[in-house]
Design a protein around this nucleic acid. Sequence first.
RNA 1: GGUCCCGUCGUCCAGCGGCCUAGGACGCCGGCCUUUCAAGCCGGAAACGCCGGUUCGAAUCCGGUCGGGACUGCCA
Length: 473
Amino acid sequence: MTVRVRMAPSPTGFLHVGTARAALFNWLFARHHGGVFIVRIDDTDLERSTQEYEDEILESILWLGLDWDEGPRVGGPHGTYRQSDRFDRYREVAHSLVESGAAYFDDRTAEELEELRQRAQAEGKHPGHYIRRPEKERTEGAIRLSIPQDAPIVFEDLVRGRISFEPQDVDDFVILRSDGTPTYHLASTTDDVDYEITHVARGEDLLPSTPKHILLTRAMGHTEPVYAHLPLLFGTDGRKLSKRHGATALSEYREAGYLPEAMFNYLANLGWSLDAETTIFTKEQAIAAFDLADVSKNPAAFDPEKLKWMNGEYIRALEPERFREMVRPWIEKDVGRALDPEEWERFLQISQLVQERTHLLPEAAEQVRFLFVDFEAYDPAAWEKVMAKDGVAGVLDRALDALESLDDWDAGGVEERMRKLPEELGIGAAKVFQPVRVAVTGTSVSPPLFESMAALGRDRTLERIRRARRELG
RNA sequence: GGUCCCGUCGUCCAGCGGCCUAGGACGCCGGCCUUUCAAGCCGGAAACGCCGGUUCGAAUCCGGUCGGGACUGCCA
């Protein structure tokens, strides 16, 4: 039997990293088994669903590197993969369940039901004890599924093992609202049946709904899929993942300069691992080794620090040409204009040194800004820390002397001259190089100095040192 | 309150009865390298929630306890 799995996002917001990880696990499972990965749009909430969100979600999935075999844009044997196109089908299912006696109409008011719930709560019982088929038959209202009270609902969860619910703990839940629209339970379960989904891997928050889905599937005359309930994602403080932990939308990470490969690797390692030792692994390695049964049971904390480290690993592993290509737009955005060929050449001289020092693409742009922008002001902290010290003016004068007579302006030549200065002046290397660094780059942290000076060019470098000297008076 | 789930370093993951004086990774601390920052290398601190039981032997199995989480809607 071919493995058929799906991700079913609701286009009511951006793609959340938690949803993305669930999609990732489904995708890995499908690819491992040579199965089918389906994307289905769960837009039963017509009020809040938008085309913009749908597009954003699909783009994010693609960016992560998850391609789907059936679904929006690519189509498939089932025609539509949008629930809003299938309301007639859901109604048909609901009514046929009433027909067969598995479901019933219920026109009790919200107040009446609330009263029943309160009563159940007061007696320490489940609402299901009271919310059952009313005495007399109705012919309108919402449609509820009637829960058979004869046997516990037991299933084998791929990640959690055997799970069992007592029927009295499951209430007769609504499958079709009185306005004729389907609830999530009905739409999702019907689709899983119709699209022949074999495995449902989803967030643990849906574990308590699973007996409902199983009973609904059986009432429809089918056998339920294999379930796998994935642990939820939290912040490192153990609280629900939210804005205060940083970005929660996948697209925000793309916009912040993260590489999709790093994101993929990081997410795959949250709740699953390749083996005991390996943290960095490829998509192919993950596909080869992945199994839902190996997914951890406990919740995972999303750690932005580790993601950032991992992104640095991936950036360093990039081919130098590829790195330059990826950084260019970030530099141009930072500088506010396109770089001309001569400027681009400056960057190429130190791009590899920059690549080693970059965790996020935008950081690279910051590091080379001094090559293209004549800064108006020095970093105050840097000025205070290195330029305000005694003897700096003398150091700059001496550096100017040494560099002005230099004919071959390249990193090697600059270094040769500069290396002699500390000894000549009788002071430490840092005391010489740091003032020059601040003078040339405007800050005390920069790519390696001699290469930076070489890339900046002779005239610009000397002019900046003179300028700093003037500032010192 | 009820139902269900979970409980190994601060965090992610390994461990599936002896290989564990518990391993890898991020982060942290110290050192080396060094013109800054990175990177790299070396070293270090850091965990089996607790109590019982089973067993020759338990992080691993069982029970209890404590703690955390999810769900408890005519939301998804």
